[in-house]
């Protein structure tokens, strides 16, 4: 090959290889010029990146996510170690001794929610109980349950008021429709996740591995019930309001940049308790239980009541049902309610 040999002058500014030999002074000057421009380039890049200095890595990225495995790949020992790490982290950030558990789906149990629209009076006790129980961010505010005040005569929430005042409920001529994750049997949100960070468990609850989510928000776009929330920045929860009874897949504190959602309070319900929203409801509009048990309250409701499935036409097969109290004779059931 007949390659022209690069001479010293080559490191100079406007000379693309094989310049005529320069006097030594020029070469030094051009070397200086290159050094100065490369230096200026790096300085500019450094200045551009300077906001990164304010980044609180421990808070924002919760330690070791780079090495953390997907939930489904964790062995029992790895889980124990990981949960201890998370507990230590919570102790560091909040000064709270929390316990992070991992309750498993109970065999033979499939959870279903039923909500009585005739009873709900729009008091929003469920919304606030949920925030407390599930350690949602208080600032910016994240809520899993949205209650819409709707005028009688329509079922289109577009005609409803999402921001009505709590104090004047129930308003005459209106009814209230709380909406949260429907825990669909055919969930569009899990299908679209590019990294399998969200999936449906055996008891029908759709969960998220907060340490696996990459924050693309495709699931949020896919959900027809607007049930998913994103952490647009580091969540803030006052330490004295932190619920220390936590589960890995539900109410442990989330980090920024990940999705979260209602998990039917699996940290409670998989241990035989009721969801926080149900316990808080003063009207008795909320019913929860195992659909596979024919004697459960929800099974009876689904057998006997008039049921409304929200957006049945999108084919998501929700596990969240609305129903109505009926008055007067029951044409199909021989009068038994």
């Amino acid at each position: 090959m007949r390659l022209p040999v690069l001479n010293q002058g080559d490191s100079g500014g406007g000379c693309g290889g094989g310049c005529p030999p320069e006097p030594p002074g020029d070469s030094r000057r051009s070397f200086l010029r290159t050094t100065v421009s490369v230096g200026a380039g790096f300085a500019a890049l450094g200045a551009a990146l300077s906001p990164l200095r304010d980044l609180d890595v421990d808070k924002a990225f919760s330690g070791d996510s780079l090495l953390r495995d997907h939930y489904k790949e964790l062995s029992a020992e790895e889980k124990a170690r990981l949960f201890a790490d998370i507990e230590a982290q919570i102790d560091r950030s909040y000064g709270v001794k929390a316990s992070v558990g991992d309750p498993q789906p109970i065999p033979g149990v499939e959870f279903v929610y039923a909500l009585n629209l005739s009873r709900c009076d729009g008091n929003r006790a469920c919304v606030h109980a949920c925030v407390k129980e599930n350690n949602q961010s208080r600032s910016p505010e994240i809520q899993y349950i949205r209650v819409v005040e709707m005028p009688i005569g329509t079922f289109d929430p577009e005609h409803g008021d999402h921001y009505y005042g709590d104090e004047e409920t129930p308003k005459p001529g209106h009814f209230y429709m709380p909406m949260q994750c429907h825990q669909c049997a055919n969930p569009p949100c899990t299908k679209v996740c590019p990294v399998e960070a969200t999936w449906q468990e055996a008891d029908g609850i759709t969960v998220i591995d907060y340490d696996w989510c990459i924050g693309c928000r495709y699931c949020q776009a896919a959900c027809p019930y607007w049930a998913r929330r994103f952490n647009w920045t580091d969540p803030e929860i006052p330490a004295d309001e932190l619920n220390p009874d936590m589960a890995y897949l539900s109410n442990r504190p989330r980090s920024r940049g990940v999705m979260e959602k209602c998990t039917f309070c699996l940290q409670r319900t998989r241990k035989g308790r009721m969801p926080a929203c149900l316990e808080a409801c003063p009207t008795g509009a909320r019913k929860f239980g195992n659909i596979l048990d024919p004697s459960s309250e929800v099974s009876q409701i689904l057998r006997n009541k008039r049921i409304l499935v929200l957006k049945e036409e999108v084919g998501t097969r929700p596990r969240f049902f609305y129903y109505f109290d009926e008055r007067g004779p029951q044409p199909n059931e021989g009068g038994a309610a």
Binding site: F61, L66, V195, C216
Partner: peptide, 9 residues
């Protein structure tokens, strides 16, 4: 992405 640090997932 909310978590570009997790792209490798």
């Amino acid at each position: 992405l909310g978590r570009p640090d997790r792209m490798h997932h």
